[in-house]
């Protein structure tokens, strides 16, 4: 963590401790947009951390953006930080000023016809109904077009993921004006990679927080006359979890520091490694918390349900592991070690 990140973490912790309570999250899961929380994040510039100032961002390093996403996930913040950031990176990457309001990104299947008719659908757009504009990639004759369209132009079918986060089905059929799209650069895959990278950051943050919750709980919960933290069986489980969390944090940091030069392989490694940790860590966290952690009343589930949802988004572990396997397989075999050491 560098000095800039320490400052970000401080203000984020303060803000989220105040404005992102269990109740805030509960209400959001019931459909109430946490406006106060979002606006506080927007006012402090945290929602555009790392983006260039001359394009409307808060300045700093793009690594900071993923760092904000990771830190906010510790609080299970029910706001579209990851999507807002993804959209902002795509526009600012093309030299465009970042738009006002809440942005989301629609990963889907969209086409732009020769007369600029945009049509297509996206099955599960994060926080779609709460956004102001939707960023998406449409294709025309194999060319990618970055499009920004107000949410009001879409047909929105509301749906939630298992964490109660809005994942709305969006469809559209609309003639765009020239100011609404930008062609000339293959960007669809890049958007998918950044999307996956945000999931790595989200998962790593939430994993760190459920470790902390589990450790604290184990020192408070008394059974057989002593805190369960004193039992080796519990200590060993938490130690296993700590290893998974440490590896996840390291994997997430790699994507943060390499953001500008992020490759398919780097994203794949992060999504695979952290996704695998989710299964192990949520298992242990719930086991340590006992029946109490299985209740809706306990805030553990606000993290674990998100972890189970996020590991499926932008490709499960296996999708990425196949890509990693392709990279390291075949005639490259004698070069296996060389390929590993190339990945500093």
């Amino acid at each position: 963590m560098n000095e800039q990140q320490r400052l970000i973490k401080e203000s984020l912790d303060r803000l989220l401790s105040d404005l992102c309570s269990k109740t805030t999250i509960d209400k959001a899961e019931k459909g109430e947009f946490p406006g106060e929380l979002w606006h506080a994040l927007a006012d402090t510039g945290l929602v555009l951390a790392g983006l260039p100032e001359d394009l409307g961002g808060a300045g700093g390093d793009l690594a900071d953006s993923l760092f904000v996403v990771r830190e906010a996930a510790k609080f299970a913040a029910p706001v579209p930080l990851a999507e807002h950031f993804l959209a902002a990176v795509l526009w600012s990457g093309r030299g465009e000023t970042v738009r006002e309001g809440i942005m989301t990104f629609a990963e889907g299947d969209f086409r732009l016809s020769d007369n600029d008719q945009l049509s297509g659908t996206a099955p599960a757009v994060a926080f779609g109904r709460w956004s102001d504009t939707v960023t998406l990639i449409a294709t025309r004759n194999n060319e990618d077009f970055l499009c920004g369209v107000p949410i009001s132009e879409f047909r929105v079918e509301e749906a939630n993921n298992i964490a109660g986060e809005p994942r709305d089905a969006l469809s559209i059929n609309l003639v765009l004006n020239k100011s609404q799209y930008l062609g000339g650069e293959p960007i669809k895959r890049k958007a998918y990679l950044i999307g996956a990278a945000t999931r790595v950051a989200l998962m790593a943050g939430a994993l760190e927080s459920i470790l902390e919750m589990s450790v604290v709980y184990s020192t408070e919960r008394v059974q057989f006359g002593k805190p369960i933290a004193k039992f080796q069986a519990i200590q060993q489980q938490l130690a296993t979890m700590a290893g998974e969390v440490a590896a996840s944090l390291r994997a997430a940091q790699s994507l943060e520091t390499k953001f500008e030069s992020m490759t398919e392989l780097e994203v794949a490694i992060g999504k695979s490694r952290v996704g695998e940790a989710v299964g192990i860590c949520t298992d242990i966290a719930h086991q340590v918390h006992g029946a109490m952690g299985y209740t809706m009343e306990h805030s553990l589930n606000q993290r674990t349900r998100r972890l189970w949802a996020w590991r499926e988004e932008y490709g499960s572990e296996q999708e990425w592991e196949i890509a990693i396997g392709q990279f390291f397989s075949g005639n490259a075999s004698e070069k296996l070690w060389d390929q590993v050491t190339f990945l500093n």
Partner: peptide, 30 residues
């Protein structure tokens, strides 16, 4: 193992190798 399977090997085999390599790269960084 990587010598035995080619880039167009079946997805199951590739995913096994991929999973193990993701671990290895992360451990090495640590």
């Amino acid at each position: 193992f990587s010598r035995e399977i080619s880039e167009d090997a079946d997805a199951y085999q590739l995913a096994l190798l991929g999973r193990l390599m993701a671990h290895l790269v992360t451990l090495r960084r640590m």
